[in-house]
Simulated assay, not measured.
Amino acid sequence: MAITSNISAIKQYDPAATAKAAQDVTSTKDLTQNFLKMLTVQLQNQDPMNPTDTASMTTQLAQLNMVDGINKMNTSMGSLLSQIQSSDFINMSTTVGKYAMAPSSNINYDGSTPVNLAAKLASDASNVSATITNELGQKILEVDLGAANEGVVNFSWDGSDAAGNPVAAGMYKLLIASTTTDGKEEKPTAYVSSRVATIGKNGTAIEVNLADGRTLTPSEIAQWVA
């Protein structure tokens, strides 16, 4: 008994067909169409004494459909992520000109604008002190912040030294020390604020560029200061 085949009717990829160069014939859609055509031909021409296992064919078709669904979902998720990133960038652009508080011990004093500072305590303290030194390491000012609870303690420096005289513009360093309620000495994290100069992008990551030269990610900013 002769068995005929219509397999030649299956769509073939022709690399010379420039009109179809933009079409991806290896896409899930094309694979599914080819699979259905092959399935039809096989069913029409199968040996009655040894029929093709249609269950396995159906499983393959289901897998192709699942892959197609995953690809579509990935495309949708990628589009949604792109929209969220664009929205975040636009929202961050509204912070230009505001003051961001972030971890740092360096104060870039401009000679006139008071600087907002902070100390982050890991535990309750019976006493917290802040020391400001110049580039030579000489003490300019020491401030007793008193007792404070665990968390962020805010204060500001108006640019004066211990005698109340204004200091020159330049780089200064902030040192924080504390004594816990059980008598332990600690070095809390120092925070320094600076004006947001620009908002930029590094790939898909948003960068916050401060006037004092620091470049931060939004997650590094602990506070926004008016």
Rank of each mutant, 00 (worst) to 15 (best):
N6W: 06
N6I: 04
A17W: 08
A22N: 11
N34I: 12
F35L: 10
L36W: 03
L39N: 07
V41G: 08
T52C: 05
L61H: 10
A62F: 07
M66F: 12
D68S: 15
N74T: 08
T75V: 03
M77V: 13
L80Y: 11
S82N: 12
S86D: 13
M92D: 02
M92A: 15
M92I: 00
S93P: 00
V96Y: 03
V96F: 04
K98D: 05
A100K: 01
P103C: 05
S105Y: 04
N106D: 14
I107V: 10
V115D: 05
L117M: 09
A118M: 08
A119H: 07
N127I: 08
N127R: 13
E135Y: 02
L136E: 14
G137N: 02
I140S: 00
D144G: 00
N149R: 11
N154L: 10
N154D: 14
W157S: 00
N165F: 05
V167Y: 00
A169V: 02
A169N: 10
G170P: 00
M171S: 13
Y172E: 04
A177I: 07
S178L: 06
V192T: 06
S193K: 03
R195D: 02
V196A: 08
A197K: 14
K201G: 08
L210E: 00
D212T: 04
E220V: 03
A222D: 08
W224Y: 09
A226Q: 12
